[in-house]
C-alpha cells in the first residue's frame, strides 16, 4: 500500500494503526512464521507478557496476534503467526522490509506479580507456547524471584515443536523443568508421546503455593485445568489465555464478548474462576 503514511503513528488513538516494518521472518513450523517487527519512528513503549497487538495487512484485514518475544527487548516486536485464513496467511507471507499496520499492545497479561515467590507451572499446547514465551523470558530473567519453574509443552508431532532450538537451550539449564510431549510420532522421535495432561501429575510443584499459566486450544485447556485441579491446584491459582474473534480490541465493539466478559479488554488472560461455567458452554 503506497500511502502507508496514512497509518502514521498516533499512539494517542488506539484505533489508528502505526506502520511497522518486518525486520526478520523465520519459519517456525508447518504454516507457522515468526515475524520480528520494528515500528516506524515511534518509541517502542513496552509490553506485558500475555498482551497482543492488532496487526493489519494492508488491503486484506486486521487480526489479533500475541507478542511472543522478550519483554526486556520491546523494540523487537516479535509475533508468531499460524496461517489459518486470509489475514493470518497474508501476514505470514510479508517479507522482510514489508510494511504492516500495528495497534497495541492490548489486554491483560499473565499475573507476573502474583507469581513472585511461588512455583510457576506453564502448560502450553501447540501455538499456545507463543503467548507464554514472554512470561518464560521474564521468569528466567528474574529467576531468583520464583520457586520451581516448570514448562509442560504438548504439540501434535515432533516437526511442529515451536521454538525447538530455544527449548533445547532452556533444557540445559538446571533451574527449570521442561517436559515436551507430542500426540504421535514416527520411530525416530525419542521423547515423550501422549497428551500434555499426562505430564501434570509428575510435575514438580507445590499445589498449595503454585500458579499455573495455561495457553492452547480450548479443549486442551479444559483437560489441562481439570488435571491441574486433580493435582491440588485451586481455581484461583489457574490462569488461561482466551481467544475470541475481535475487532476494536479496546472494549467498544463487543465482538469478542464471552459471557459477561470482553476478551480484548478484560483478558485475554483470565483467572479461571472468573470463567467458571463458560468454558464448557458450547456456543457463546
Amino acid at each position: 500500500m503506497g500511502d502507508a503514511a496514512a497509518f502514521a503513528a498516533d499512539r494517542a488513538d488506539p484505533m489508528v494503526p502505526r506502520v511497522a516494518r518486518v525486520r526478520r521472518r523465520r519459519r517456525d513450523g508447518p504454516l507457522v512464521w515468526t515475524l520480528e517487527l520494528e515500528a516506524d519512528g515511534a518509541d517502542p513503549g513496552g509490553f506485558a507478557p500475555g498482551q497482543f497487538n492488532m496487526l493489519t495487512v494492508f488491503g486484506v484485514g486486521e487480526v489479533p496476534i500475541s507478542l511472543s518475544g522478550d519483554p526486556a527487548a520491546p523494540d523487537r516486536l516479535v509475533h508468531t503467526v499460524r496461517a489459518v485464513g486470509p489475514v493470518s496467511a497474508a501476514l505470514a507471507r510479508v517479507e522482510p522490509g514489508g510494511a504492516v499496520g500495528l495497534r497495541g499492545p492490548f489486554g491483560a497479561g499473565w499475573p507476573m506479580a502474583e507469581a513472585a515467590g511461588r512455583d510457576v507451572v506453564l502448560v502450553a499446547g501447540g501455538l499456545g507456547l507463543a503467548p507464554l514465551r514472554p512470561a518464560l523470558y521474564r521468569l528466567l530473567a528474574e529467576r531468583e524471584r520464583y520457586g520451581n519453574v516448570v514448562l509442560l509443552y504438548g504439540t501434535r508431532s515432533p516437526d511442529e515443536i515451536l521454538f525447538r532450538r530455544e527449548i533445547e537451550t532452556w533444557r540445559r539449564r538446571l533451574d527449570i523443568d521442561i517436559e515436551v510431549t507430542v500426540d504421535h510420532a514416527a520411530g525416530d522421535w525419542h521423547g515423550h508421546v501422549g497428551v500434555v495432561t499426562t505430564l501434570i501429575p509428575r510435575a514438580a510443584f507445590d499445589p498449595l503455593h503454585a500458579l499455573a499459566l495455561v495457553c492452547g486450544p480450548e479443549v486442551m485447556m479444559r483437560f489441562a485445568i481439570s488435571a491441574l485441579r486433580d493435582a491440588g491446584l485451586a481455581e484461583e491459582a489457574v490462569y488461561l489465555s482466551m481467544e475470541r474473534n475481535m475487532k476494536c480490541a479496546v472494549g467498544l465493539c463487543g465482538h469478542c464478548q464471552f459471557g459477561p466478559v470482553l476478551v480484548c479488554r478484560d483478558g485475554p488472560v483470565f483467572r479461571f474462576d472468573r470463567l467458571r461455567g463458560l468454558l464448557r458452554t458450547k456456543e457463546i
Partner: peptide, 16 residues
C-alpha cells in the same frame, strides 16, 4: 480413552 479422544480431536490442528 480420554487421551485417545484428545488425539482424535487433533486439537493442535488449525481448527484448535
Amino acid at each position: 480413552l480420554q487421551a485417545a479422544r484428545l488425539q482424535i480431536l487433533d486439537v493442535y490442528g488449525s481448527h484448535g
